[in-house]
């Protein structure tokens, strides 16, 4: 990176550190912070959509659909979320390959599960055997995003379902008295009003989502945890220009600080949004704001 870095053995102190922290591998570490942010940016809206779908399904008057929605909300109760992460990654992968297999190789006659193997035809492999490395990485990341979205969609469905219940019943009754259909009352009355009730739960969920991002490591994505372990381990002079002892503790300390800052900033921002949204609402919070101003 810097011109004086050409011969690291002669360096010491801060100059050594500045060279050490700008090696190619460290750039990968910094880029993986981007991976985490990208995961958050993609997962949050998709999970919200899944959650909205789940919550609306749970409220449906069509009984099997409502069971489906309630089952979706219920899956995350009672079972550790990490078990779902490990489960969905393999299950989704096999589901996709199985789908492609049935479409692409209809005349395949061997069973798919042969003992301890899951065998699909070569054309159905995901990603294809000869695909470049970046396709493998993107596919892994895509699976991780989908897994996160399904699980956090269930959490969000739970929050939104509660928020829909919290909208005063009289509001919907009034809408029906005006002759609105069930569907109109839902979209025009219920949905616009539910967000203020949902926001505390959703901001909690955002914090939980931030704190779940290191689990990407378990899904096989090269994220910050992966790089912290790689870079922190003992390095001998044989393999690197920057030999050092076991520094993993410092790397994970840095990750700890990163997450603390991230959650703190989120907390402050979400607090501001909440203050703005409660302004003028007929809730306890809105009343407190009115009294404080008066």
């Amino acid at each position: 990176m810097f011109s004086y870095c050409s011969d690291p053995e002669t360096l010491s102190g801060l100059t050594w550190l500045s060279c050490y922290l700008t090696t190619g591998k460290h750039t990968s570490l910094y880029l993986s912070f981007g991976t985490v942010l990208l995961l958050l940016a993609i997962t949050a809206p998709i999970a919200l959509v899944f959650g909205f779908g789940g919550a609306s399904a749970a409220r449906s008057r069509f009984v099997p659909l409502s069971w489906l929605g309630k089952a979706y909300i219920g899956i995350v109760r009672g079972v550790p979320d990490i078990a779902f992460f490990l489960f969905f990654v393999i299950a989704l992968d096999q589901a996709f390959e199985y789908l492609r297999h049935t479409i692409k190789c209809p005349d395949w006659d061997q069973p798919i599960r042969q003992g301890n193997d899951f065998v699909v035809c070569a054309a159905a492999k995901l990603p294809l055997g000869d695909a470049p490395q970046w396709v493998h990485e993107t596919y892994g990341f895509f699976l991780a995003v989908l897994t996160f979205s399904i699980i956090f969609g269930a959490f969000a469905a739970n929050v939104l379902y509660g928020a829909m219940q919290a909208v005063p019943r009289a509001q919907v009754e009034t809408a029906e008295a005006y002759g609105m259909t069930h569907r109109q009352a839902f979209w025009r009355i219920m949905v616009p009003q539910m967000w203020v009730y949902a926001l505390p739960g959703l901001s909690n969920l955002w914090m939980v989502l931030i704190k779940a991002t290191p689990l990407l490591f378990l899904l096989g994505v090269e994220d910050i945890v992966y790089w912290a372990r790689e870079l922190g381990g003992t390095k001998t002079p044989k393999f690197t220009d920057y030999p050092h002892g076991d520094w993993r503790m410092w790397y994970f300390g840095a990750l700890l600080v990163f997450y603390l800052l991230f959650t703190k900033v989120s907390e402050v921002v979400l607090g501001r949004i909440m203050r703005r949204l409660t302004h003028g609402q007929a809730t306890m919070g809105g009343e407190a704001q009115r009294k404080a101003a008066a």
Binding site: K211, P214, A228, R229, D246, M249, L255, L256, Y259, L260
Partner: peptide, 12 residues
């Protein structure tokens, strides 16, 4: 901070 990172940090 995530419990996952706390475990890693504490172990090292």
């Amino acid at each position: 901070s995530p419990l996952f990172i706390q475990f890693f940090f504490a172990y090292f």
